[in-house]
């Protein structure tokens, strides 16, 4: 038996929104500790890793680890019917052939319930090593979203370079070149406005802007985003969900021409 109740159901809706443009069918793995997802996009250049701790839930019971195989377009349609302040309840039997979803709202007194057929999804799990990265940058997630959205008018590829100067995003195309430099900035009283750059050695890597833009769908989940880079390794783009979990994206760099 799996049963979980999340007072702020909107968090789960935002998680679904943050991955649905990258993958269609996905397993949500339930254990006694957490709900988690690990999946790759069909081109195998990006990986999403999500974790939401059992402590995020008001009630969490998972007798036996199970995988809920979901079709995200269908899940997304159901979540469109969830109100902003609704509590979400998930339930599944150990056989896990269907998932019950309930959206409750005490104020309006409404209870919506849905039964969703589950699928058996064959998932390849990647062994992601725990690496010490050469550069780690924390910045406002809204600023990152604006930069990768704006640079799309210049080209398809974004060069991200971290140097002593700061963190530079560059794109080149037919009309010319654009560079946006973020310097370290800890002047604001609000910590979520800070830009912190922790650099052991300079790193410069190229990435597809299309993917970086997919990742910014997670912006509503977190005021800050953490970027981690090492030469020749996939970039990590992490959106922490309070102290309760995260959505992390890994994107393979482009090969040098």
């Amino acid at each position: 038996m799996f049963e979980a109740r999340l007072a702020n159901g909107n968090i789960f809706k935002m998680i679904v929104e943050s991955i649905r443009e990258l993958v269609v069918d996905v397993n949500i793995d339930c254990s006694t500790e957490e709900l988690s997802i690990q999946c790759m996009d069909s081109a195998h250049v990006a990986l999403v890793s999500m974790s939401l701790s059992q402590s995020a839930f008001d009630h969490f019971r998972c007798d036996r680890s199970l995988s809920l195989g979901l079709n995200l377009p269908n899940v997304s349609k159901i979540f469109k019917m969830m109100g902003r302040d609704d509590t979400m309840v998930l339930k599944a039997e150990d056989s896990a052939d269907k998932l019950m979803l309930m959206f409750e709202n005490d104020k309006s007194g409404t209870i919506a319930d849905f039964e969703l057929k589950l699928m058996a999804i064959e998932a390849e799990q990647l062994g992601v090593p725990d690496t010490a990265y050469k550069c780690s940058i924390s910045m406002p997630s809204s600023e990152f979203q604006r930069i990768v959205r704006d640079l799309q008018v210049m080209g398809d590829t974004c060069k991200i370079s971290c140097t002593k100067e700061g963190l530079k995003f560059s794109a080149t195309g037919q009309i010319g070149t654009g560079n946006i430099l973020m310097r370290q900035n800890v002047a604001s009283e609000k910590e979520e406005d800070h830009v912190t750059i922790d650099m052991e050695e300079p790193v410069e890597l190229n990435f597809a802007l299309r993917y970086l833009n997919f990742f910014t769908k997670a912006t509503p989940l977190s005021p800050t985003v953490i970027l981690k880079m090492s030469p020749g390794l996939p970039i990590v783009i992490e959106y922490p969900i309070e102290q309760l979990g995260h959505v992390k994206y890994y994107l393979a760099p482009k090969m040098e021409e």
């Binding site: 250049v45 990006a46 990986l47 398809d156 090969m255």
Partner: peptide
């Protein structure tokens, strides 16, 4: 156009 690496090359399947 420069190609994107494949993630399998970095992490490998479990």
């Amino acid at each position: 156009q420069n190609r994107q690496y494949n993630l399998d090359a970095f992490f490998g399947l479990k």
